[in-house]
Amino acid sequence: MKIAVIGGTGLIGSQVVKILNATGHEAVPHSPSTGLDLLSGKGLAEALSGADVVVNLTNSPTFDEASPAFFQQTMDNMVTAAEAAGVGHAVILSIVGADLVPDLVYYRAKVLQENILKAGPVPYSIVRATQFFEFIDSALSWTSDEHTVRLPATLVQPMASADVAQAVADVSVGAPLRGTRDVAGPEVFRLDELGRITLAAHGDQRAVVTDDTAGMFAAAAGEALIAQPGAVIAKTTYQDWLAR
């Protein structure tokens, strides 16, 4: 099976390409470094020529008000090109609970991305994942100074990017779901407590202050970011990932 992986040189994409090629498929990574600009459409027809599946793992360069326009343009380009190329399956990666956090423009943008795919002519699958372990440090940096890290008590269920990549690869080689598959980590944390675990693992002496107005994830209420029954639960725990 030939699979075009757009965003195939990034954190998730590079791992998806490796998994697919190791299992006998022909996964080809595409990105600006290979000559594909999904925003303008340059190189898209060539990237999708002969592909059975297209996997779109590109992301908006910002989380702000510019993100909806990015996803609108890139998805319109991808869906049009995929139909023209006769691609039989289109896959995107989204976020668990994206539709439950309307106060975050980036989450609204991801829902827009999903809806464009759903409304299009190409059979599709959507993989929704929880936050990646690899991004925890970035989340801590948003509301920190030299003495403290302020974090909300938002519930999160993070997972390893390797497990996200495996889930995307598995869906990519299957029949189109014509729906959504949720994947999540095996443990639920309060974000402030996860911050304390992370700082301790790094030998960082800063204090974590619980602040339910701090950072992007403060907008997520209750169990919005937690996987619901039926989700695929990954095996890698945060402590195991830290130990590696």
Score class of each variant (00 low, 15 high):
S49V: 10
A51K: 04
D52K: 09
V54Q: 05
V54W: 02
V55D: 01
V55H: 06
V55G: 11
L57C: 05
D64Y: 13
A66Q: 15
A66K: 15
A69P: 05
F70E: 12
F71V: 05
F71H: 10
Q72S: 13
Q72R: 15
Q72D: 15
Q73I: 11
M75I: 12
D76L: 14
N77S: 01
V79G: 04
A81N: 05
A81Y: 04
A84K: 15
A85T: 04
A85K: 03
A85Q: 08
V87A: 06
V87R: 05
G88D: 08
H89C: 06
I92P: 03
S94V: 10
I95N: 11
V96C: 04
V96I: 10
V96F: 01
G97M: 01
G97N: 01
L104R: 04
K110I: 11
K110E: 15
K110W: 07
V111P: 07
L112I: 03
Q113A: 14
Q113G: 12
Q113E: 15
E114W: 05
I116V: 07
L117R: 05
P121L: 15
V122D: 07
P123K: 08
P123S: 00
I126W: 01
V127N: 03
R128A: 06
A129Q: 03
A129P: 13
Q131D: 05
Q131N: 13
Q131C: 13
F132Y: 14
E134S: 13
E134W: 02
I136P: 00
S138E: 15
W142N: 08
W142A: 14
W142G: 07
S144I: 04
